[in-house]
Each structure stands twice: as structure tokens, then as C-alpha cells.
Design a protein around this nucleic acid. Sequence first.
RNA 1: CGGGGCGUAGCGCAGUUUGGUAGCGCACCACACUGGGGGUGUGGUGGUCACAGGUUCAAAUCCUGUCGUCCCGACCA
Length: 573
Amino acid sequence: MRTSQYLLGTLRETPADAEIISHQLMLRAGMISKLASGLYTWLPTGLRVLRKVEQIIREEMNQSGAMEVMMPVVQPAELWQESERWQQYGPELLRIKDRHQREFCLGPTHEEVITDLIRQQVHSYKQLPANFYQIQTKFRDEIRPRFGVMRSREFIMKDAYSFHIDEASLQQTYQTMFDTYCRIFDRIGVDYRPVDADTGSIGGSTSHEFHVLASSGEDDIAFSDQSNYAANIEMAEAIAPAKTAASNLSDLQLVDTPNQHSIEEVAQLLKQSEDQILKTLIVETDPEHSPDASLIALVLRGDHTLNEIKAEKLAAVKSPLTFASDSQIQAAIECKPGSIGPIKLPFKVIADRSAVNCHNFVCGANQDGKHLINANWERDAQYDDVADLRNVKEGDPSPDGQGKLQIKRGIEVGHIFQLGNKYSEAMSATVLNDKGKSVPMPMGCYGIGVTRIVAAVIEQNYDDKGILWPISIAPFQVAIVGINLHKSEIAKQCAEKLYEQLKALQIDVLLDDRKERPGVKFADMELIGVPYRIVVGEKSLADGNVEFRARNEADNQLIAESEIIGLIQNKLQ
RNA sequence: CGGGGCGUAGCGCAGUUUGGUAGCGCACCACACUGGGGGUGUGGUGGUCACAGGUUCAAAUCCUGUCGUCCCGACCA
């Protein structure tokens, strides 16, 4: 490709509404252009990168025995009604009607469509296991699209769905996909971690996420400093502290804490550390499990934060987690939030593992503007159950017993699930087993955010000049920058010759043949992140040399014109 | 959905307080000089000032409404 015939589209200034570095650089490098909130056009440079990511994924999926298919973006409502997700999915599912007033949606995912396909196509256990994938556009009407293609409404996903005769087969394919994902991210050349994960609204049991570690990530990942334990903070278990015996129970005191509602405020006023204060949160109960009471209390140590996923998983707690309103609380215990404690509450109390280990603690007195000092469990306060309710903190012991937890931000670029029979049962996707009996097929599903990977790689690979692509997905592998080609016939001939030679070798080469000053060309090639640069100018050509520089190096190397092609070939191997 | 900010040329912004008919930098076009790190000069192109009402002799500017967009929160594969 020649820059003189190519839409480079680079910007010198950073568009004002781009927050994170990958979004800024993708706009500046002319990779994407915004059409509307959460909708982006991929420009030539961006599309080149995207296609390379897709190709790596495709090759590795094929290698693992998966079959590529392509399903429609528009899906009929009937299928979603069959799986009951038409009701369960919120406004994130974009619903549309056709001219006959029939209902459809834009697919945010394709479990229903693939399950429908497979129940038509597969009838015998002999056809199993089978794994199908596609690289396809998805649409999710995100509440708040942000960070460019990192969280857009329309995006490209590689999604795969496997079908099995039994759980053992599912687990085997799940492991194969786990390994395949590792190979994919290794080949792309990104720093990632597989982590234990929650299954969320997709459902199912076992699940792993693949995260690219970057400070702009939207998830917190907890991992051990001494083992390979890693989990999304939603899932990371806060293990129970060793029981400390209560010695010297002090006398309970009631103190005034007017207008002090937060743990921080109370801690300051009473000169107590936050871990000596208990916080009591009142949430609604699940009516099926607790028909007798509408509220339930969750008690945590003041320095800990509630893990809503863990709380929602408790049978007694309503899902989605719903905090009690001030008026609900006032009606039940005659005080406002900020002064609540686990003291003779008229409903059940679930205490966090760490909270039950506190002695002589501070807690609300269930009277507005008053707290208790030196409260103790049993003597003064009561709980009905103990559970793991909190988010782990940096420095907590690792749940696998090895080392301490560190917490870093991660960008979720892959997610694999064992779905079990959720969809195959709901949609009657069955096969005959070797006994001639009709059984539902356990399923797995495996997603990779293709467009998101592009942004995630940039988050890990940039400097003050622009992007530093790994060679695997760079839009161009080599840039030839000609110096004063309009004046120097010898430089022009050399640049053209090298360009033709590299092209003939199937190397992605960009010849910068614009009539621009060298500084402009260097800046553009660095901004779009071409890994290798050859500078062809009369000056070095006088000694038969061209200049070579890798994007991540600071200095040029003089290379004999006759050797540069060989050098490039070597580097690209 | 709640809170906040912003909509003026392709991009970044000033002008709005105090109403007088639109400007700067970059980009773009032409020419000249320049020619190894976003160069200089001269001359240009490009704007229903988000939209709709209203006030006024006069509205980018004041008032009302609408839309878009971004940030924080809630929410979420």
C-alpha cells in the first residue's frame, strides 16, 4: 500500500470526548470513526488490525476442531420466548418489528439460534461432540457505551457453542477451549490472565474469564502473589479469619453520634479504626424463601465492602439485590440508615465471616444519632447466619492457601462457560444416546470480544508517540519512508524497489511516498504503530545503506541496501 | 433512570457574563521558499453558531422546550 493512495486519516489533536488511551489513539491513528454513541466505522487501518485478530482466532478455533458457521444478526422473538430470555433480558435487548408487526431482536448473543439449528441438524450421539463458532456482529443496547470500541453497542464477537452427550465430554471440550484461548492470546501477544468467574445472566456452572491486565479495565481481578490462583473479585472467596477468643469484654456504652452516618464519620468522631466498627445493611428478602419477613440485615466490618454477587446468591436475599428504602427501614426499626446495628432486629441477620470475629466493636444503636461502643456478639448483638459477604481486599490470604491476594484491573476479552442443559432443556435439543433414549445435550459456550481485543492491546502497548503493535496484528509490518523522493531519483528508485520486493514476499508493507516533510512521515508511521521502519534517503544511500529501526527502539541502524530484505524476513519469522 | 458538563468550520477551542449579525490554531486548496522529526510566508475554501419556539429594532449571546453527546452513579456480558 502507498500512503499517496491510502486514507491514513491521522489526527494531530486528541478528540475531546476520548477518555482512555486506546480510544484516543484509535481516533488519532485513523482506525475508527464514530457514527453515533456506541457505533463506530472501522477505517482501513483499523480494519486491517481487526482482520488479523479475527484470522488468528479463526486459525486456532479450526485447529481445535471447531466448525465455522454464520448466523443472522436479526433473530425472531419466538426463539427468545422459548428460552424465556425475551422476558428476562432487559432493555439491553434491542427489539424491533418488521412490516408485518412480527417481533424480532438484534442478537446480543446466539445461544437460541445455535440451539435451534442443532436440534434440527443433530439427532444421534454419534454426531457429538460438536463445536460451532462464528465471528459475527452483536448488538447490546448498553446503558452507557464508553471508551470507544471497548464498550460499544455494536461490536464483533467470536462466539462458539459446543454440544455433548454428557458432562464428561463437555468438560473435555471446555478444557480444549481454555487451552485454545491461551494459544490465541499468546499469539496475539497480549499480557492476560485466565480467572475464575461468575456466570452472570448467561447461566450455567463453571466459568472462566480471560482478562487483559490494564489500569483502564472495568473489572477487579484478585490474584495470588505466590500461586496461579486468579479470580474476578465478584468470585474471590474471602476466607474466614482464625477465631480469636474474646478476652476482657468491656462494658457496653451508648454514645451520641449526631449526624454521623458513614463508617468514616463515625470512626473519626469516636477515634476508632474502621475495622472496629460494624456496618449493617438492610436489603429486601426473596419472597419465596422468606415469606414471613420482607427485610434482612447484612453485617460487615467497617473497612470491608459488600460483594453484591455473593449476597444475591444467598437464598434469603432477593435477586437482584435491592436495598431497603429509608421508609421501609423506619417502619421496621424506627431509625434511619446510619444508626443501624445488629441489636435485637425484628428480622434475620447474616454476618460476614470477618464481622463475627470482632470483639468490643462499635455499631449503630438502632436509635437515630446513637451508636454503641464495646458491643459484643451474644451478649449484646445477634446473628442468625454467617456467610462470605464481602469483597476481598489487597493483602487478604489467597483462597488456595498460598500467598496473599493482589488486586489489579482487567479488561474482559474472553469468557468461557459450561452451560449444562439450560438451553437444551428449554428448547428441547435432544439426541438419542447409545441406549436409544432421548437426552438433552449439555452445552458449553465460549466468547471472545474481537473488537475489544484491539483496544485492549493498545492499552498495553503504547508510548508518547503512538501505538506499539505486536507484529502479529500490526496493520502493516513494515513502513518504507522515502526522504525527498520528488527530488532524489536514486532514493525514489530504491524505495520503489524495496517496496516491490517486500510485496512479492507477501509482507504487509506501507510505502510513504507522500510529498511531505520527513518529520510528518515519521510521526504518522509511529502513531499508527508500524513495527519496522526503513528510511530511504540520498544521504545514507550514498554509502549503499538504508536505515532500519524497530518501533520500540530509539536508534537507527545503517543496513546495506542489499541486506535489508533479508533482515526484515528474519525479524518477521 | 438519577446527578453534572458540553453542543460555534473536519479536529481543538475563544466569543455568551454586559444582545449589534462570527473568530483563532490545526487540517484542507494554490503559489513560493524550505527539505532528516509535525517548517515558513502570501493568498484562499469551508459555518442555517444542535434544533424548535419566544423576547427584541436586532439573538451564537436572554427565556422556554426538544434532541445529541460526554462524565459520575445505578445497570450489564
